[in-house]
């Protein structure tokens, strides 16, 4: 199979308007990925499936990942020559920036026909609150059907064009998305007949203490 860089260039030639970025993976697995923009994702996915040199006919795995907003410290080192003629100094400049939160879906593609893979696709949402819509790849690979439902259920990514987007593991009336990093269970979630510790503290907020029973008269 061609390298991922060659593949990226080929996609860029075929879809000039598409924004395809090579996302490198520093781990020893070296499973690098292509980050696609949402607009062209389905067209590119169809191309990957149907191209005779690739034939990525199996979308094995779909994973959702949550990246909450976090503060990143960038360190830039500049070498300043000493005007007095001594050894140059290294000046460290720290800049803090806020990396915006986002949700991500990762697709692992393999080819059964040509026995190669994985080609990893990544799609990223705009944020974690209101721009959480991504195109569904279920029309391209049916195997994404239940897996995208799972990602919708647990992460709250809405897949546009999915034939049957419902909750799959949690029940229908459930409100939140439990795989998000900042998910907190409702504090009246647990009930125990003899609460103690944290559960007791939570229970006291929600359930009034039972009235003391009348002293038994002899």
């Amino acid at each position: 199979m061609e390298t991922l860089t060659q593949l990226r260039d080929r996609i860029a030639a075929l879809f000039p308007a598409a924004d395809v970025v090579l996302a490198t993976n520093p781990s020893p697995s070296a499973q690098h990925a292509l980050r696609l923009d949402a607009t062209h994702a389905r067209a590119i996915a169809t191309f990957l499936r149907d191209d005779p040199a690739l034939q990525l006919d199996q979308c094995t795995n779909v994973t959702g990942i949550d990246w909450p907003e976090k503060e990143v410290v960038d360190v830039t080192r500049t070498t300043v020559p000493d005007p007095a003629g001594g050894a140059p100094r290294v000046v460290e400049e720290k800049t803090r920036r806020i990396e915006p939160g986002r949700l991500e879906v990762v697709y692992h593609l393999y080819s059964i026909a040509l026995s190669h893979g994985p080609v990893v696709l990544r799609l990223v949402t705009g944020n974690r609150t209101d721009a959480v819509t991504l195109p569904s790849l279920t029309p391209v690979w049916r195997s994404a059907e239940f897996q995208e439902r799972e990602v919708y259920d647990l992460f709250g990514i809405v897949f546009e064009g999915h034939p049957d987007l419902r909750r799959i593991l949690m029940w229908d009336g459930f409100k939140d998305h439990p795989m998000r990093r900042d998910y907190r269970e409702p504090d009246d979630y647990e009930w125990e007949p003899t609460p103690h510790g944290d559960v007791l503290a939570k229970a006291k907020q929600h359930y009034p203490a039972p009235a003391p029973s009348a002293p038994s008269t002899p």
Binding site: P26, S27, P28, S29, Q31, N61, H108, P118
Partner: peptide
Amino acid sequence: RPKVGEAYGR
């Protein structure tokens, strides 16, 4: 503590 990165093993 593995280094930053990811892997899919099957």
